[in-house]
Design a protein around this nucleic acid. Structure first.
Lengths: 223, 223, 223, 223
DNA sequence: AATGAATGAGTGTTCATTCAT
DNA sequence: CATGAATGAACACTCATTCAT
């Protein structure tokens, strides 16, 4: 579906192996020897094609985010109720991230801390785009009187992505806890129950009427 | 307050430096040379005291989880309304994790994938204990008719921790997005607004009455 | 003026770049990538045209010494006093070397030690030719009673070339020492003062009447 | 004889091997593996002891120039005729350089061009010291009316060292030319004939009365 | 005739670990 | 008990060269 004209077949092969290994073992934990061995290419090819290990990562980010960018876009324009739109958005979002676990993991946990000085402008743009669509939908719901007015929209995405990632990053723990003793069961659980849980969470947040006197939230401020 | 009888002063010094560096640069990204230099001890001391780099990590996990274990415990017994207990629990939990970012980050993102064969039984126990307390409180609320019955309790913790961690792991992005241009502002935001957001999220999840026909949640099952 | 029938335009381009880089960074310090980049040709071209990096050097030596060979020749036949001939010879020689610093540097400092098994027969021939002309002139001067009889002709060239090369190889030191703070001043100094100094040196050697009892020269023999 | 308190036995061993190899094959042409193998030490030791290959060179320069510095000094104060002093100085100088061919070659031909940003302040100091002593002696001779007044003292050292180095750098050529078909003969030739030649050269330069009309030296200025 | 793709050998350097003292 | 010295293995990367086209 998506075209990636800049990289040839072997480069893509390297990028795929690199994505998988970086996601699994982290950037530092993966040696170019391992990548070369797994991708069945010569070690020197990585430097030859990408310049360096770091630039390989950079190319990987570029390669994978290119597709991700506009996959959520036109939902805001569809003819749906705001709540339906939100549910759809969450579903699409989780699905998108779940299908691109590798690169998302790298982006969020390997690069997010900013220690690498890799241009993550792409990531930043994607994020802002996602935030924009979310804002449009929520403001529509607010105008229609369906959603609450005091929502911190910026904190919805941490809840959506955070929940998913925590579940994904602690895979073996949750497989054990929830008896999801196969890859299929685990993945099916994400697509149904976990997605549903996140949808419920966001819906509840958007619609529930906050009780006026929240002593704990206040209490927290003066720690 | 917490006693750590097994480790001497120098060992603790090493462990503290190691925690900080592992959290910042990851396990693979941190060399024992760096640890030794920062802790102002001889390189050989690490192998000498802990056996190996991996065993140092193991010792670190042991050292830090020992204290964490029972810090949430007796809340369930207090004389509070279920919702108040939940709010308090969320507050305590976030605070606990926020004050122990380092080791939590290591536990959840460095070790959670299971690539290292480090005994994480301790972590597992802590988790199950936390889950137990949460279950007790929620079931109490359900008995009292305050909370919904169809809650998947196991998925509450991913929401709580996940939201926090996503916010923490993408620090620079959120600092920029929310104009939290100082360490203090960022930390204050976590303690007040973010904590409040997570409390609202959990509360909404526990209390909100789900609308009966959720077509999207169903739709997701047949992808 | 000089014809180079064996090499085409691109080859000559490569050779010129190679000469410059070999002279500046040495043979080992220069990679064929750098040559290729600077000469704006494909890397493979060097091996393609010359066979190997070493053979490129060999070709370079051939290419550049071909012209140098006979540029000093017919001086001996001119109608000049022996001393004038010597002065002219020194002038021509220094000028020749100075205008071909690059290849001379390579010849004398990169290849002279014989570690490379490059055919330096050409160089050897040139040298012997130069020595021959020098010998003819000096013997003429000796016959005419102008020059001393006890001259070791073979050691005159080390003095001429050595003085020049030492000055050239320690360029920055002498630029600093003699306030020759520009390329022009430095080069002008070589053409005038240094050349003159070398001419004086050779003249003095040829004409000065040695004092009969030189205790130090004797003393040195039994170290 | 000379003490080098800063370096231990193994370090000195490495330095000696490095000097020999750098002198023979150049800095770039010598790999640390070769050094390690020849010095019979582990490869990692070089980085361990010296930090890097470049720092090894730096250490080598320091190590060897430390001794060289003051070996010529007190000659100026001795009770000798100026000409005897000059002869003695030349003898000492050639001998010093000849006994330290390796490091001198590295200093003058590997480092002199300034491509490496190694602190050659030491070298510069040594040079200036040598120049100082030479100046003192020559000025004494000029005061006594023994030496000419129009001497460019700075150009005497290029003649002394240059002659020697040219002879040394083109060893095989001169061995062949002068029938010095053994190491001993070659070295003996340096100590006697070559040294004598250089002494004669300098003496001739200092004492010979320049002929007033030197048309060639003038002619050179307008090239 | 000319070149982009590819490679194995080699580079300097850093790694966690061991060991004699 | 503690550590400076030392090491083999691995690291990312560059090298000159080859080869199919």
């Amino acid at each position: 579906m998506s075209i990636t004209p800049d990289f040839n077949e072997k480069q893509i092969q390297i990028l795929q192996v690199a994505e998988s290994l970086f996601a699994e073992k982290g950037f530092e934990g993966t040696s170019i020897r391992t990548i070369a061995k797994e991708a069945k290419i010569n070690i020197a090819m990585i430097s030859y094609y990408f310049g360096s290990k770091e630039k390989l990562l950079e190319a990987l980010v570029l390669f994978r985010t290119k597709d991700l960018r506009f996959q959520i876009g036109n939902l805001a324009a569809e003819d749906l109720e705001p709540l339906e739109k939100i549910n759809e958005l969450v579903y699409l979002y989780i699905n998108l991230v779940n299908c691109n676990k590798g690169i998302y993991r790298i982006l969020h946990f390997e690069l997010a801390n900013g220690s690498k000085d890799i241009k993550l402008q792409v990531l930043s743009e994607v994020r802002k785009e996602h935030l924009k669509y979310l804002t449009i939908i929520i403001e529509e719901g607010q105008r229609k009187g369906v959603f609450r007015k005091d929502i911190i929209i910026e904190l919805l995405i941490p809840t959506i992505l955070g929940t998913f990632f925590h579940f994904y990053m602690n895979k073996s723990y949750y497989q054990n806890l929830l008896d999801l003793n196969s890859e299929e069961k685990y993945n099916e659980y994400i697509k149904t129950t976990l997605t549903n849980h996140i949808q419920q969470t966001i819906k509840a947040l958007l619609i529930y009427e906050i009780c006026p006197n929240n002593k704990f939230a206040k209490a927290n401020t003066n720690e």
